[in-house]
Design a protein around this nucleic acid. Structure first.
Lengths: 308, 308
DNA sequence: CAATTATTGTATAGTTATTGTATATTTATA
DNA sequence: TATAAATATACAATAACTATACAATAATTG
């Protein structure tokens, strides 16, 4: 999809690479000699010339080393490694090899995030996308990735930085896709808004993309919206539905006053999704909102059913 | 449009060029002889005559050398490089017709935002982009648009919804551009992070895009970052600089403790931009940070100067 | 558990390459 | 004529190359 074949210019001599990555030149040569890791271009006289891709690879290697993987086994977990997968068999996803492939993508992305390496992150994601449809990649790679990262972040001191990095990457990537699809949608309009106080956006993109694919037009307002101004959006856009989202537990008062008022005055159904629906489903229902399951596919299905 | 064909007058003898660039004449001749770098005009009797373009090229070469690229490989990164665009003359845009055109784009976009009409919004933006380079569109359309919208939102009850809508659109649009350019950047790394508490992202995208265009690699962490984990990012990425951003006034305690500690321990210079620098420049300076002007072009210029 | 073996980063020796500058000599400029 | 530039050759300081060696761990085995 992106430039997998455009070869990078290899211009950096080994000393510069050593400075950039912190790996001793002698060590780098040893890795090459002993395990065939990174094979830089050579000048006519044999001097090594590394490309920025090579440098990225080295940083990836460092990450893997830090995870405890021995250098002799690093090659297997590297971007070039586990990519000889067969074409997707739509029936066979409980197959061990397939499972392994997804896990390997997840591992690659975890590694890339921990190294703040956008290129490696994107390479892994694109590799998956080049083999499987976006829905499947979202379900089998991105969702598990987010689950794994969330677990990692529970105990990791520098969680915040990694969270921001991954969030920023996914928002750019999914946002581009959203924007692109958004221009050709023609059906009924859905307004999507995150409840004030919650800054989570990625799940909203999943839902928005699913809605676009289903033919809806989507007005995406993003996270942390003031509920008071949403009524205005609904009337201005003649939306067919409002879908709210919150990953945080909602204050009881917000449910009984603001949300209830919004649902009562809105000219269309008001749905709500996100993990708040797990435990607050009943209260939300009493306030006149329609709780949706967290899983965005089922959520969208329920919206479609309700609207038809 | 821009006169690419008016050949520069080649007038400078080698001594003058040596003084202007700091490169020894002997060295310059060696570069020409050994690697075919720069081929100045010659007088009838063979004396070299350099043009101002040649001098620019030499300065470019010096930059590449500073990046660690050996002189023997510089040629490849020079001719093939995507950095040969002449900038549009900034003086020529006070023309009345032009001004009118920009105002009309701004009007179209304001209307589109107030109708939550992504397609109309995008049409206006794309129309501008099809006629003018992105830098100019950012300066003449997006910045004024944001200024105008900010003014409108001062008094508008439903400001929040419009703000979110425009913000979401721009983030998707600029994010896609950032992501795309990001994959081909090769220079030193800048880490960009918004200070915790502030959720403004658009200005950070402007700066990030300008930095990418200037050849930097950018690790974009987005808004609302915990300062504590940034040090970890810097060491992981071996960044050449950290650029913070805050549109909000910073609490005095944050400056004297967290920011000061960060600047002290960081392995690279720590810059800060955003409107906080207007009034808190001195405090920030005392804390060891380098305040940047709000205008992203001057800001980047200062970063480049400081790093070189 | 001690002994053995494997792994892996780094050191060193002996060469060869790269690259900035010096110098000798000749020719052009002012 | 004094200065400056041109070509050509030379040279020294780095920096890279290969190959071998070695010490500190880690893993395995008797």
């Amino acid at each position: 999809m992106y430039n997998r074949n455009t070869r990078e210019q290899a211009v950096y001599p080994i000393r510069v690479v050593a400075e950039k990555t912190g790996v001793n030149p002698v060590t780098m040569r040893a890795w090459e000699r002993r395990y065939g890791l990174i094979k830089p271009e050579r000048t006519a006289k044999g001097h090594r010339l590394y490309s920025t891709q090579d440098i990225d690879t080295i940083n990836q290697i460092l990450q893997l080393l830090e995870q405890g993987i021995p250098i002799s086994r690093v090659a297997e977990s590297l971007s070039g490694g586990p990519l000889r997968e067969p074409l997707p068999d739509p029936a066979g996803y409980d197959d061990a090899a397939e499972k392994n492939a997804w896990e390997s993508y997840v591992r690659r992305m975890v590694t890339a995030v921990s190294a703040f390496d956008e290129r490696a992150l994107d390479a892994a994601y694109n590799d998956a996308l080049s083999l499987y449809p976006i829905d499947l990649v979202t379900r089998m790679l991105i969702t598990p990735l987010l689950r794994e990262m969330t677990a990692r972040w529970e105990t990791f001191v520098y969680a915040d930085a990694e969270r921001h990095f991954l969030d920023s990457y996914l928002r750019n990537k999914l946002g581009a896709r959203f924007h692109h699809q958004s221009l050709q949608a023609n059906g009924a309009k859905l307004v999507l808004a995150g409840v004030a106080g919650d800054h989570t956006e990625i799940p909203m993109f999943f839902l928005a993309l699913a809605a676009l694919t289903a033919g809806y037009r989507v007005v995406l307002l993003g996270a942390n919206c003031q509920l008071e101004s949403l009524e205005h959006v609904l009337s201005r856009t003649r939306a067919a539905a409002l879908v709210l989202h919150s990953e945080l537990l909602l204050p009881a008062r917000m449910i009984t006053s603001q949300l209830s008022a919004l649902a009562g005055r809105a000219p269309c159904p008001v749905f709500i999704t996100g993990s708040c629906t797990e435990s607050q489903s009943d209260e939300l229902d009493r306030a006149g909102l329609i709780p949706l399951p967290e899983d965005f596919i089922s959520a969208l299905q329920l919206v479609r059913d309700s609207l038809s």
